[in-house]
């Protein structure tokens, strides 16, 4: 049993790792092996997708427990679960289900989603064109004229044509996506501006020679990225002898292209050695903690 539990997984790691290396170096004369270079990474994508069920279960259980035990902040767990189930259900239903989607025929009536997918209007299908890649371009006409009595005709893709119920589901999903997901995502990203300011304050307190160098290069690069840098450079041209060499933008470019680039190369070389060495250790079973214990 120890063989099955310990040695067999090590062998699987070893064999699959070697296959990937051999596939990488094999030429077109070995098409089957060569194709594994693309097939195996696709397979691990699929495998990792299955674990999402474990993740979802973990999220649900964790929050249900909080609610059941009425732990501090259990109300927020309800919000989280409502958001999760709401989005998961809407996302699952509003996606394409080829088997159940109604066939789009000429002269039939559909709801056409706007480009931002937040509104929909009733349209008639005027004509259907098939593109070279097998896709369809549908010409539709608004069923109800607008305020001025105009009837719009436009070309849309099939994913924007929905049944009345599905269009409502899609709009609801889009409201959650744009209103909550996208807004929160952009705001969290924007918060970085404040954090960069506080981190700069901390980094620029010169405590050592090294911190001074960090501050100096950060200052030059920041200055070189804004118009103020050009103004400072112009001021310095008044200095005798060295003034003309003190162009902030040129100095910034030089710092990025030479000393900074040298350090980045060394970091990457070191990191890649670490990558390869760690990978070799895993393939040869030297590092095996990811497989867990004996049980």
């Amino acid at each position: 049993m120890l063989f099955v539990k310990r040695t067999l997984p090590l062998l699987i790691t070893f064999v699959s790792g070697i296959i990937m290396i051999v596939a990488f170096f094999s030429g077109p004369a070995l098409p089957r092996i060569k194709s594994l270079e693309e097939i195996f990474p696709q397979w691990i994508q699929i495998i990792m997708t299955f674990t999402m069920i474990l993740g979802a279960f973990s999220l649900i259980r964790f929050n249900f427990q909080k609610i059941a035990r009425k732990q501090n902040g259990w109300g927020y767990s309800i919000v989280l679960l409502v958001g999760f189930f709401g989005m998961a259900t809407l996302g699952m239903v509003s996606g394409s289900w080829a088997k159940f989607d109604p066939e789009i025929k000429e002269n039939s009536t559909f709801m056409c989603l706007a480009e931002n997918k937040l509104t929909a209007v009733e349209v008639n299908i005027k004509s259907i064109e098939t593109t070279k890649d097998g896709g369809k371009i549908i010409t539709v006409e608004n069923k109800i004229p607008d305020k001025d009595g105009n009837v719009f005709t436009r070309k849309v893709s099939t994913d924007r044509l929905k049944t009345p119920i599905m269009s409502k589901i899609s709009i609801l999903q889009q409201v959650l996506f744009e209103g909550v997901f996208k807004s929160a995502q952009s705001t969290m990203f924007a918060l970085l501006a404040f954090f960069v300011a506080s981190a700069s304050f901390r980094a620029f307190r010169i405590k050592s020679k090294e911190a001074g160098l960090l501050m100096f290069s950060a200052f030059i690069v920041m200055l070189g990225n804004v118009p103020l840098g050009n103004m400072v450079s112009k001021l310095w041209t008044w200095l005798p002898f060295i003034g003309k060499y003190l162009d902030i933008v040129v100095i910034k470019e030089w710092i990025i292209s030479y000393p900074s680039s040298a350090a980045q190369s060394a970091i990457l070389i070191g990191a890649m050695l670490g990558y390869i060495s760690s990978s070799l250790k895993i393939i040869f079973g030297v590092e095996r903690s990811h497989l867990g214990g004996e049980g």
Partner: peptide
């Protein structure tokens, strides 16, 4: 699995709490 193994090695499997190694979301900012 890795944490469970670590707690087992130290003879503290009773203190292992899998719910504290929990999934949040795949989204970077979420």
């Amino acid at each position: 699995e890795v944490v469970k193994q670590a707690y087992m090695e130290k003879g503290r499997i009773d203190a292992y709490r899998p719910d504290r190694i929990n999934y949040l979301t795949d989204d970077q900012f979420g």
